[in-house]
Design a protein around this nucleic acid. Structure first.
Lengths: 209, 209, 209, 209
DNA sequence: AATGAATGAGCCTTCATTCAT
DNA sequence: GATGAATGAAGGCTCATTCAT
């Protein structure tokens, strides 16, 4: 998106996303954010009152940006749960890995690892809805799962997805730059789907072989 | 574990681990670290030359501390790969979740998500060795895997483990405090093992059903 | 007295009196004054051009307010000078001590101790007229006084009066809250009159005993 | 006193006295104080922690400077009370009017008119001792005075003295520059003594003539 | 006539760092 | 070998003010 001439307020939120994502809350300076947004230093105080409230706005903007694109498909009532799981994983991997708005994802990851005041809102507005979608699918695949089990299944799936965002630098170092660059979204998504399908089916089959 | 009278240098490294882990690099102040270590402000400069070099030392100390405890078992030559995988996962989950030296793990996680100068060394000395152990096991379980596939399998396993450290606050918010507290290391480790075994076996069985 | 809906300009002057009196010129903020006056921030600039010119207007308004109430009596031609002196002192003490419009007196006192651009006008319009009244009385009581002497007498009288305004916090601390509260305007005025009468009569009697 | 090269801390206290006296607390800037003291901006934080605590120190230094010079004479046991009153007044007028350390007196006057956290200490350490000396003299001159009366007498005397400090700008405007410059400390002190003696003696003689 | 958006200067404070001892 | 005094740079924030409307 990032048009060149939005309103000062929007430019500020966007610049804040970038700089907070790059440097973290403490290391990001209001002055630098304003410079990148091409507004006066006092604008932060004027629009948001505070560095902290600017941060919260930036995080909110980031998660709204992430949640929108790509959107979760609206499945027709009869869509088989395995298909929905495959779609879900593909959307999530795309959101994490794709190089559009890398600042937004980065900011959210920071917030998840190092929660601040904004975390509660992010979880409530962004993460929980997705989590509920996933749990809905899982409940259908494993009807007899209790709450804890379905959470563990969900974390196993999301863990596989998130590692590509949260530990990306490490992954690049481990695989080497070339192999890392060769990784495609579709490849990752298909792998996670197949792997997870195996895990779920094994659970349904009754555990140890 | 935090003896009262170590050498000033060690006290400094330890205090640095704690404060860097709690607040991050930028928000941590040299003065506070020195205060907690009960040394003079100039000591950081004297012993390490720099805030940044103190940070690197703290990260190194953290990963040396974390790699030791609990140690990876030394398997006898004939140990079946599934058993070694189960052990590997249990050790990793324990290292991530258990609340001994939480500062050390926290610091390492920060470094993985937000690589600084210390990252290369952390990967080389701490992460790659573990990664090689895991890939060794996987190569044995899936002899015909190419490099990319074995990496993807490894990431699927480690992703499931790491999410409990890197997204812990979110997990707690999602499950609720009580359910979160009820989660036990053994439970998590067994789940990840079974889930991953299903994933690996499905791959070996030839993919889509 | 503080009607709810005057003209914006008047509301501004009034709010300025209060806030300048409470905090002093530098510590008073144009924003706060505007907030209390319920007008836009730009109103100060619009109506007065400047924070400083608003201050001058506030001081003028304060002294015009203070000079009126209570008014100096209009003595009939034959009123004995001692009676006029007693009245004069009572009016002055009342103006200083009484708790009506405390902002106005406070502002004037500030201006006397810490002269700004407004001081010359305050002296010309408010202080000198009163001073002339007093000197007229004193000239009558001590006809052979030269200028310096009559000034010294005037300062001795006004000094006794002003201390109750300018050093009020100290007086309260010295006497204690209770004794301070028990002090009545009439009591103070009578004391100053009697004390001053003694001083003046002694001078007329020829000084040292 | 004001040597050219004292310790940074002392230079700071002295510069603070001057600038706080000239501009008041809010309008005085830490930067300007440091510039005048020829120290770094951070020195205020280092030595005093705070602008406010620097202010308190400056006020304390001011009153200690004032109280020392000129000192109150140490009267021999038999000194007649009138002589002691004359000395007391002369010392007080000298402290107020003399042009040594004008900053110190100015600062104290500000504090008396606009009390801050420092006021209580100033009253306790500086003002009350002097007030007790004066009340001791007055009790001897008017043995039958109750507390309130002796306070009123004391305020009448101190009011005459303080007006030359607190309202100096107004006095200069009223008398004109020349007459103001011609006023000598001795002249003022003698006048206040004679005037006050008349006031006290009249009271002892039984009030109205 | 009157305003809300936006500004640049300056505020106090804290920071990592160094120097003389 | 180790320290306390002192520094310069930069931090977030608030201020009086202006400009387009």
């Amino acid at each position: 998106m990032a048009a060149i001439a939005e309103s000062p307020r929007d430019r500020l939120t966007e610049a804040a996303q970038e700089i907070f994502a790059e440097r973290g809350y403490a290391a990001a300076s209001v002055r630098d954010i304003c410079k990148r947004a091409a507004v006066n230093v006092a604008a932060v105080n004027y629009y948001f009152g505070d560095k902290e409230r600017l941060y919260v706005e930036a995080v909110k903007a980031a998660h709204s940006c992430i949640s929108d694109e790509p959107p979760m498909p609206e499945w027709s009532p009869g869509t088989p749960p395995w298909d929905r799981l495959r779609d879900f994983i593909r959307v999530m991997v795309t959101r994490m890995v794709r190089e559009t708005n890398p600042h937004a994802t980065h900011l959210i990851m920071r917030e998840m690892a190092q929660p601040t005041a904004a975390c509660i809102e992010v979880v409530r507005d962004y993460i929980r809805p997705s989590a509920e979608v996933l749990r809905g699918i899982l409940k259908e695949l494993c009807p007899q799962c209790d709450d804890e089990e379905s959470y563990l299944l969900g974390f196993s799936i999301m863990g596989q997805v998130l590692i590509y965002k949260q530990s990306r630098p490490v992954i690049r170092l481990l695989m080497g730059q070339e192999a890392f660059d060769a990784l495609e979204v579709e490849r990752i998504a298909r792998h996670i789907y197949e792997f997870s399908r195996g895990g779920i089916e094994r659970r349904q089959a009754g555990g140890r072989a």
